[in-house]
Amino acid sequence: SAIRWPLRRMPSRPRAAAANPTLEEFFDQLDLNDEEFNDVDIDEDPGIKESVRWLALARVHTEKNFSPSAFYKDMRVAWNPAQLVRFRPVGPNRFVVQASCLGDWERIMTQGPWLFRNMAVLLCLYDGFSRAEDVVFVHMPIWLQIHKLTDPKENIVEKLLKGAGEIMEMRLNGNTRGDYVRVRVNHDIQQPLTKFVSIIRAREHQVYLVRYEKLARFCKACGLIGHEHKE
């Protein structure tokens, strides 16, 4: 009878690693212990704390190309800072802005909205260490006016503007330039602008016009900031 030789089992080849493993997959494959890290506590380092003070991220809300140097120049003119304001690009249409004093910082962050070539400039606080491209900021503080609203009450105005954004400040009286109330809201640029508000009084529907101060380019068809209706 024929001799049957035992079959030799070939050693299995290791599975090929993913061609482009993600950062999370890479760290999952590592066996790291806490004692292997040499952490730097930035809260305890005065030098690092000083370097990240008065930092913000800025973004021009547009898909169009523009000159960063022109943006820096126009913003310095608009902010009129008392001391140096530094700019640094950190990604497509993203810039780190750093003020040198508290007065300039408060003006930059609280006295907007700011415009560059009639386009909205969005700002948010920045810690200096997070990935700039991962930071999502879509809100723009802006003043609006409700005209011809007789005997305005704070609770009524809040209900009228519940879809306009978070109310940051409200001035119901003292507007000597007209019979309107001024309200500062944190507008989400992903949502359309509020064009009018309405109430029902004595079974009568009353509509009140909403106007905006320093409004950036917006679409009269869809109400979104960032483009015109012809675009």
Rank of each mutant, 00 (worst) to 15 (best):
I48R: 08
I48G: 00
A56F: 02
A58M: 13
A58E: 01
R59E: 10
V60W: 03
H61N: 07
T62D: 08
N65R: 14
F66Q: 10
S67H: 11
S69G: 06
S69N: 12
S69V: 12
D74A: 15
R76T: 12
R76C: 11
W79D: 07
N80V: 01
P81T: 04
A82H: 00
Q83V: 03
Q83H: 06
Q83Y: 03
Q83M: 02
R86W: 05
P89Y: 13
V90N: 09
G91T: 09
G91P: 03
N93W: 11
N93M: 07
R94Q: 13
V97L: 09
Q98T: 02
Q98S: 12
A99H: 00
G103S: 14
D104K: 02
E106L: 12
E106C: 05
I108D: 00
I108Q: 00
M109F: 10
M109N: 03
T110V: 07
P113T: 04
L115W: 14
N118L: 10
M119A: 07
V121W: 10
L123Q: 03
C124I: 04
C124T: 15
Y126V: 01
S130Q: 09
R131S: 10
A132L: 08
A132K: 05
E133Q: 12
D134S: 14
V135D: 07
V136N: 10
F137C: 02
P141C: 06
Q145D: 05
I146V: 14
H147T: 12
T150H: 15
T150G: 12
K153C: 12
E154W: 02
I156P: 00
V157A: 13
L160N: 09
L161Y: 03
K162W: 08
G163F: 13
G165F: 12
M168Y: 04
M170L: 15
L172T: 08
N173C: 07
N175E: 06
G178C: 13
V181R: 09
V181G: 11
R182H: 07
R182K: 15
D188F: 05
I189S: 09
I189M: 13
Q191N: 11
